[in-house]
Write a protein that binds this DNA or RNA. Structure first.
Lengths: 141, 141
DNA sequence: ATAAATGCAAAGCATTTGCAACCAT
DNA sequence: ATGGTTGCAAATGCTTTGCATTTAT
């Protein structure tokens, strides 16, 4: 009789594909981008399922949710803390190889008296790509 | 004839009050909170005007927009860069007196090859207030 | 067999926008 | 007088949710 336990999370094709899509890119995609990708494999999947599973993945620590402007969230298949660079011009998000500074949490805790357990650090500016296209001299026109 | 210049931003009672409300609090309020406050002074103001003006203030550098979770944006009347602490439990946002590390932008630029111009740093954990209510021993029940 | 998960569509919310009236310049 | 600004309401866009059905266990 103990064939099912309440609170158990089943393994489904949908969640499997969603996670693999997320792991297979470094573009920090939106839910909709994931949707379009997953649809290539599972044409009948619904957006609702994408959102539900992204949430499950984030809550179980297998993925990370990134919220920048007031626009849509982006997701990262790499769950361990790392820093990002966001291009002010094209909006692309890049991973940074900068080592994570764990000491800073302690420092913040000392001066604030709150219990600090983590931090999030993002850099802004103009990315490589945008920068080079801007500098392209436009002879003509 | 030169009585009006295109692109000029007029001074209005509405924007004035919005900015003063924003400057008058350290709670990093949402647009709706600002709306409710401003309404006490200007009962006929509309939410749309709040949003339009918050945007103008942010773009002109007089305020700052903070986006954390996928919920609503919060605004900060202090436009110069400083760090925040967000309580995972109650969601409150606090300013931190931690000095801003400008050198870190340079470091990020070196290892990334992007043009880094600024950064944003947020700490997470449990705030003072939540922490003490949690630790209150519950004798009885 | 059973409850978790899905697909679908409707609902929810924060934010934006079109437009006629209004008002600062 | 002119065009930026407002209030209002409708529209948008992302995300969530209710429900009947399907599916993993």
């Amino acid at each position: 009789m103990a064939t099912s336990r309440p609170g158990f999370i089943r393994k489904t094709k949908q969640r499997e594909v969603i996670l693999s899509v997320l792991r297979g890119t470094d573009t920090h995609p939106s839910a909709d981008w994931v949707y379009q990708e997953v649809r290539k494999v599972l044409p009948n999947i619904s957006l609702g399922t994408i959102y539900r599973n992204l949430r499950i993945l984030v809550e179980s620590g297998e993925a990370m949710e990134l919220a920048f402007g007031s626009t849509s969230s982006r997701f990262d298949g790499n769950p361990k803390n790392h820093y990002h660079f966001i291009c002010d011009q094209c909006g692309n998000v890049y991973d940074l190889a900068l080592p994570v500074d764990h000491g800073i949490d302690k420092k913040a805790q000392e001066i604030s008296s709150h219990k600090v357990v983590s931090h999030r650090l993002e850099f802004y500016g103009v990315c490589n790509e945008c920068n080079s296209s801007n500098h392209t001299p436009n002879r003509g026109s």
